[in-house]
Nucleic acid binder design. Structure first.
Length: 791
RNA sequence: GCCGCGGUGGCGGAAUUGGUAGACGCACGGGACUCAAAAUCCCGCGAUCGUAAGGUCAUGAGAGUUCGAUUCUCUCCCGCGGCACCA
């Protein structure tokens, strides 16, 4: 038997595909076929190179897009580099090289690795977010946000990571710590560029109804945006007013005190509160939220608020359990119907008034008494609006996007700060605004970007008045370039626009987007928002629709052997280079698809790879080894019919399995089919091509080689997709199962054409001894499956 | 606490408009080939009782619906992920 020359085959076809541009996506024209746009999250090219979990998503979508391409669709599937960002800059600092050079080196390594796996990417559409030709449009888009009033500079408390020396968006803070390095985040007051994503909060929730995302993705996004419907209520405090937000306006009569956040303006200036406010400011976010729920607070002496519902005077407290950045930073406390208020009231001995009875009827509520609880919320809002002391409203947990980073390796924010004219956009014809070439990238403790010290770059003339001005020195977060890259794939070399409307109309929306769950509240949310904005201002044509991704799926993580997470520190990371070198790309790909359900975490298993390698060796032997293609007549007629049934079942299963991402069962089925061919002594000629075509999305190199070996013309990857004949899915006989009182008592192989009466008669005969002479009460027949006898 | 996903052999996992539980692969055991080993091929492989034929039990636990439940309903337990003093 000839050994399968894995590496020769793979190198040969990779070179051939590259030369013939086999996977090139056609630009839309008169006769262009129907499109299919498959998308995977483009990688950040780290210094460590790919690890084995990385390509899982790419292999899956590669199989899906290959199948689409074989079916005749015009497929867009491409790749690129999300190459700006903190890790690249830290890498450069550590290795004393320029971020530009380090990034290029890493990109080259990633490209080599991806090419060795044999993806069907259209490499002519490769994207690099750090390429000035690309980020020219990232900057242009930022200026559109600015010109439409959605990008603004504001002094706010931001999340500051003292280790990375960088400001973080809320989405980048996990449990009060920096998402990247785990350092507890501090609060710092800073002027930052912000983008008003909150203006899209409602649409970001509502439009989820129009797309097909995994349920957990939708619910995580909804959760993150955090919509609450309730009311603002105004409490008079002397000559001033304190406005609170509540989701329970119905319990207004039970409000026995107010609580303000320590940052609330009304709290300032009260001598007795000073120490408390000072202490609260010093605490980190985790300290403030992790205090085992033991409530603290201080009463503001000598001030009372008037409850607008009953005119009662109630005290005002400050406490850090009320958050400054949510609602109005002030609440009405209803201890009878809110756990937190109850804990606070009990600790400080404040009155508790129940306003909803056990029977869900309003009590102790003046004009609301007797109203059913379910109606009370709406009635109270109407009353508040009528009396002009409040209004119904909706709030969101989502906050505006902190868009500034005080680091070197990012897109410079193209704004010029002029004392006279304010923030002035860099004129479009001066884009891209590139980074100055410098020697020092170290971030500063002062929280200023290293760009600030490059005076020659910073000092410019104001484009509006011509006076002395300074460039903005903050850069954009790495989420900027990745928020629109899928649009650029449609038209990657355009220097007149981010992409031409014609091409966008043809390719958008993305038909399938696969990526990690960890990006659900970051990249996925940002890019949906970004896209909606571009769509609103007409930079993306109306025809593309309001959502960028029709379908969103997520892959499970690959764990280390044994079930732990793969990590550099544990030394259990599997490098795809090693796997490809030892087994070849096809084995690597097939194993990834076979190892477990695509959407679930699965441990890497070296033994499992061996099994897949054996399978491909056996496929090889069947075609080119001793068993070769079965000549006519070697396989008898009955056997051929059996194989035919199995073949058509396999075509159906693989066709549907790929579309539904049930890759592991597709591979099982292909194994079953091969086992049957082996047992029969070869492959009937009528099934040869189809079998190779079914293998092609999973093992493209081997399939192409076999395609050539059997003398077929062209590439298997453009050869069509096999179809199944529904009439041939049914075997000529089946095993009839007979149950008595729900237990299996007999089996018999019967002809598929068996009638109901025949089946029942046969069944009763088979299980006679179990009936013990009794007459069956009921006999149930399930066609093609079983007979159930009840006695 | 809230939301989402999941729990099936020694292991990864199949099977759901309710109809043969454990497909396929791994590991393991036995055999063939070999001086021997590797590779390859063949057979076996949930537990339990039985020489066997065959029986009984078994899909996290318990109940329910049904001729029949891994699949549907209810109650509970455990694991993973997300959010969390959000008023």
């Amino acid at each position: 038997m000839s050994k399968r020359p894995v590496h020769e085959i793979e190198a040969k076809w990779q070179a051939e595909w590259e030369k013939s541009k086999l996977y090139q996506a056609a630009d839309p024209g008169k006769d262009t076929a129907e499109k299919f746009y498959g998308l995977v999250e483009f990688p950040f090219p780290s210094g460590e190179g790919l690890h084995v979990g990385h390509p899982r998503s790419y292999i899956a979508v590669d199989a899906m897009t290959r199948k689409q391409r074989m079916s005749g669709k015009n497929v867009l599937y491409s790749i690129g580099w999300d190459a700006f960002g903190l890790p690249a800059e830290n890498y450069a600092i550590k290795h004393k090289v320029k971020p530009q050079d380090a990034t290029q080196k890493n990109i080259n390594n990633f490209r080599r690795q991806l090419k060795s796996i044999g993806f069907g990417f259209d490499w002519d559409r490769e994207i690099d977010t750090t390429d000035p030709k690309y980020f020219k449009w990232t900057q242009w888009q930022f200026l559109q946000f600015f010109k439409h009033g959605l990008a603004y500079k504001a002094k706010t408390n931001i999340n500051w990571c003292p280790k990375d020396k960088i400001g973080l968006a809320n989405e980048e803070v996990v449990a009060g710590c920096c998402e990247r390095c785990g350092t507890p985040v501090e609060k710092r007051e800073k002027e930052q560029w912000m983008i008003a994503i909150t203006q899209y909060a409602e649409r970001l929730i509502a439009d989820l109804d129009t797309v097909d995302y995994l349920p957990q993705i939708k619910s995580q996004q909804i959760n993150w945006i955090g919509k609450s419907e309730g009311a603002y209520i105004d409490f008079a405090v002397g000559h001033e007013t304190v406005r609170v937000f509540t989701t329970r306006p119905d319990t207004l009569f039970g409000a026995t005190y107010l609580v303000l956040a320590p940052e609330h303006p009304l709290a300032a200036g009260h001598e007795e509160a000073k120490t408390y406010i000072e202490a609260a400011r010093k605490k980190t976010e985790i300290e403030r939220t992790n205090e085992d729920k033991e409530k603290t607070g201080v009463r503001l002496e000598g001030v009372m608020a008037i409850n607008p519902a009953n005119g009662q005077e109630i005290p005002i407290w400050i406490s850090d359990y009320v958050l400054a950045h949510y609602g109005t930073g002030a609440i009405m406390a209803v201890p009878a119907h809110d756990e937190r208020d109850e804990a606070f009231a009990k600790k400080f001995d404040l009155p508790i008034v129940q306003v909803i009875s056990e029977e869900q009827i309003m009590i102790n509520s003046g004009f609301m008494d007797g109203v059913p609880a379910w109606k009370a919320k709406d009635e109270m809002i109407s009353w508040l609006e009528e009396k002009k002391c409040g209004e119904g409203t909706t709030t969101y947990k989502l906050r505006d996007w902190v868009f500034s980073r005080q680091r070197y390796w990012g897109e410079p924010i193209p704004i010029i700060n002029c004392k006279k004219c304010g923030h002035v956009p860099v004129p479009d014809d001066q884009l891209p605004l590139t980074l100055p070439d410098v020697d020092v990238y170290e971030p500063t403790d002062s929280g200023e970007s290293p760009l600030a010290s490059m005076r020659a770059w910073v000092e410019v003339k104001c484009p509006t008045c011509g006076g002395d001005a300074e460039r903005e020195t903050d850069t954009m977060p790495n989420w900027a370039g990745s928020s629109w890259y899928f649009l650029r794939y449609c038209d990657p070399h355009n220097d007149q626009a981010l992409a031409s409307p014609e091409k966008l109309k043809y390719w958008m929306p993305v038909d399938l987007y696969n990526g990690g769950m960890e990006h659900t509240t970051l990249h996925l949310l940002y890019s949906r928002f970004w896209y909606k904005f571009l769509w609103d201002i007409g930079a993306v044509p109306q025809e593309c629709g309001s959502e960028p991704y029709k379908v969103r799926r997520s892959h499970g993580l690959i764990m280390a052997q044994g079930g732990e997470k793969m990590s550099k520190s544990k030394g259990n990371v599997v490098n795809p280079d090693d796997v490809v070198n030892e087994y070849g790309a096809d084995v690597f790909r097939l194993y990834q698809m076979f190892m477990g359900p695509f959407d679930q975490a699965v441990p890497w298993d070296t033994n499992g790879i061996e099994g897949v390698r054996k399978y491909l060796d056996r496929v090889w032997v069947l075609f080119v080894g001793a068993q070769f293609i079965a000549p006519q007549g070697v396989i008898n007629h009955a056997r051929t019919l059996e194989l035919e049934t199995l073949y058509h079942q396999t075509v159906k299963k693989v066709t549907e399995g790929i579309d539904h991402m049930h890759f592991n069962t597709c591979v099982s089925q292909l194994m079953i089919l091969l086992n049957a061919f082996s047992d029969a002594g070869g492959i009937p000629e009528t099934m040869q091509k189809g079998f190779i075509q079914l293998l092609a999305p999973f093992v493209p190199h081997l399939a192409e080689e076999l395609w050539q070996k059997i003398g077929a013309t062209g590439s298997v990857h453009r050869s069509g997709w096999p179809s199944f004949d529904s009439s041939k899915l049914q075997a000529s006989s089946f095993t009839l199962v007979v149950q008595v009182n729900g237990k299996i008592r007999g089996k018999a192989v019967v002809d598929s054409t068996v009638s109901e009466d025949e089946a029942k008669a046969k069944a009763l005969e088979l299980v006679e001894k179990w009936l013990e002479g009794k007459t069956p009460k009921q006999v149930i027949y399930v066609k093609g499956k079983l007979v159930s006898v009840v006695v």
